[in-house]
Simulated assay, not measured.
Amino acid sequence: MISEQEILLTGAGSVGQSLIPRLLERHPTRLRVLDNDESRLAKLRAQFDDPRLEFLVGNVRDGDCLERAMTGFDDVIHTAAMKHVDVCQYDPYEAVKTNVVGVQNVVDAAVDANVERLVFTSSDKAVNPANAMGTTKLLSEQLVAAHRARADHDLRLASVRFGNVINSSQSVVPRFAEQIRSGGPVTLTDERMTRFFLTYDDVFDLVSQSLERAYGGEIYVYKMPAIRIVDLANAMIEAIAPQYGYDSEEIEIELIGRRPGETFHEEIMTDREVDRAHETDSLYAIRPESVGDERGDGLEEFTSATDVVRSSGDAEKLTQTEIVSLLRESGLDGLLDDEPPAEARAPASPSVDGTLPSG
């Protein structure tokens, strides 16, 4: 589905950047990256040397820009968004302009440009949303589904919903690592917190499968492992502290209280969605209510989902040993090596607030 296609990727944040090399490995004819951060695009241009790769400065709030950006492209992967819970909570209208109006602009431009397929990257915070960011993601999922119900275009659409990506800019992993390097404490909002996690490879697998299966606004969800955040903190302390000359028992965990809009657990779908869910070994697919029993071209391999565990609080949790293995799988061997890095015990930057991920 990616090979020999012309693909537009909106957003060059941590998820968008992770998709670039993985998409290029699948041999697209052209990959254009649109982002509103000129400096970020300049760094990416210097990082990649590939004639198939283009960089375009633009904002998803600008419909005219999107119309120009999409002309001649086959597929769109939309990752551009405001993702930080606390930022969106402080100014919800800005989140609406990017996360809702921006999605509407992307879909409208895709329809006008005769794009074949569009995948929108959502969040598990769209499930029973407790904050402004999650609410905008939920509305965006519904916008994507509603567009497929229109009869005046052939665009195939899907949303993907996933949890926290190990070592992304919104993940606690780099925050915990920096706090451990500084000698602690590792700050945790509440010991009861649990989250779903996945790797960047999982994200690409989810996006690429959804791009291939996109049909009628379905929501695809990766089957993710759940982790107690306190177990993640302890696992990282045990694995990393010795590299920086600390005994793991020296690094304390400090409880600082929940932030506004933060939930104890994450959910992958609602009770109502469970009734419309289908599954494979690695994915759930949730059909929009508006399509009735129509399953579309992308769900032939799926069967009705059974025994869905919706909440990270109810899911079986990874052990600390399994957490370390997941970190290694995510390419974090540099943090977990037996030999300390050269900069160990160097003067550290001020400790950051290692609260739970916000996007």
Score class of each variant (00 low, 15 high):
residue 6 E to S: 15
residue 8 L to W: 03
residue 8 L to A: 07
residue 19 L to S: 00
residue 25 E to V: 12
residue 29 T to N: 13
residue 30 R to K: 15
residue 32 R to Q: 10
residue 33 V to S: 02
residue 33 V to W: 04
residue 36 N to E: 01
residue 38 E to D: 11
residue 40 R to M: 04
residue 41 L to S: 03
residue 45 R to Q: 14
residue 45 R to F: 06
residue 46 A to H: 12
residue 50 D to P: 03
residue 50 D to L: 14
residue 57 V to W: 01
residue 57 V to C: 06
residue 60 V to S: 02
residue 66 L to D: 00
residue 67 E to D: 10
residue 73 F to S: 01
residue 74 D to I: 03
residue 75 D to G: 08
residue 77 I to V: 15
residue 77 I to R: 00
residue 83 K to R: 13
residue 83 K to L: 13
residue 86 D to T: 15
residue 88 C to E: 05
residue 88 C to T: 07
residue 94 E to V: 08
residue 99 N to W: 02
residue 99 N to H: 03
residue 100 V to N: 00
residue 103 V to T: 15
residue 104 Q to N: 07
residue 104 Q to A: 12
residue 109 A to L: 05
residue 112 D to H: 09
residue 117 R to K: 13
residue 120 F to I: 01
residue 125 K to T: 03
residue 128 N to W: 13
residue 133 M to A: 09
residue 135 T to S: 13
residue 137 K to Q: 05
residue 139 L to W: 07
residue 140 S to N: 08
residue 141 E to T: 06
residue 141 E to Y: 05
residue 143 L to W: 00
residue 143 L to D: 00
residue 145 A to K: 04
residue 148 R to Y: 13
residue 154 D to W: 09
residue 154 D to I: 12
residue 166 I to H: 01
residue 167 N to D: 14
residue 168 S to A: 06
residue 176 F to H: 04
residue 176 F to C: 05
residue 177 A to H: 06
residue 179 Q to R: 13
residue 179 Q to I: 07
residue 183 G to F: 05
residue 184 G to H: 09
residue 188 L to G: 05
residue 191 E to C: 10
residue 192 R to P: 02
residue 193 M to W: 03
residue 197 F to R: 00
residue 204 F to H: 08
residue 204 F to V: 12
residue 204 F to M: 14
residue 210 S to C: 09
residue 211 L to M: 14
residue 214 A to R: 01
residue 220 Y to F: 07
residue 222 Y to Q: 09
residue 222 Y to L: 13
residue 223 K to M: 08
residue 225 P to N: 04
residue 228 R to P: 03
residue 235 A to H: 03
residue 238 E to V: 12
residue 238 E to K: 08
residue 239 A to M: 10
residue 239 A to Y: 10
residue 242 P to Y: 04
residue 244 Y to F: 15
residue 244 Y to S: 06
residue 245 G to T: 09
residue 246 Y to V: 07
residue 247 D to Q: 14
residue 248 S to P: 10
residue 249 E to F: 11
residue 251 I to H: 00
residue 256 I to W: 07
residue 264 F to C: 09
residue 269 M to S: 07
residue 271 D to Q: 11
residue 272 R to G: 06
residue 275 D to Y: 08
residue 279 E to Q: 15
residue 280 T to Y: 14
residue 281 D to C: 14
residue 282 S to C: 14
residue 283 L to V: 03
residue 283 L to P: 01
residue 285 A to W: 04
residue 287 R to D: 04
residue 291 V to E: 06
residue 292 G to D: 05
residue 297 D to K: 13
residue 297 D to E: 10
residue 298 G to L: 04
residue 305 A to G: 11
residue 314 D to N: 11
residue 322 E to Q: 15
residue 327 L to P: 00
residue 330 S to K: 07
residue 330 S to L: 11
residue 332 L to D: 02
residue 332 L to Q: 05
residue 334 G to N: 07
residue 334 G to Y: 11
residue 338 D to A: 13
residue 340 P to Y: 10
residue 345 R to V: 12
residue 349 S to A: 15
residue 351 S to C: 08
residue 351 S to M: 12
residue 355 T to C: 11
residue 358 S to L: 03
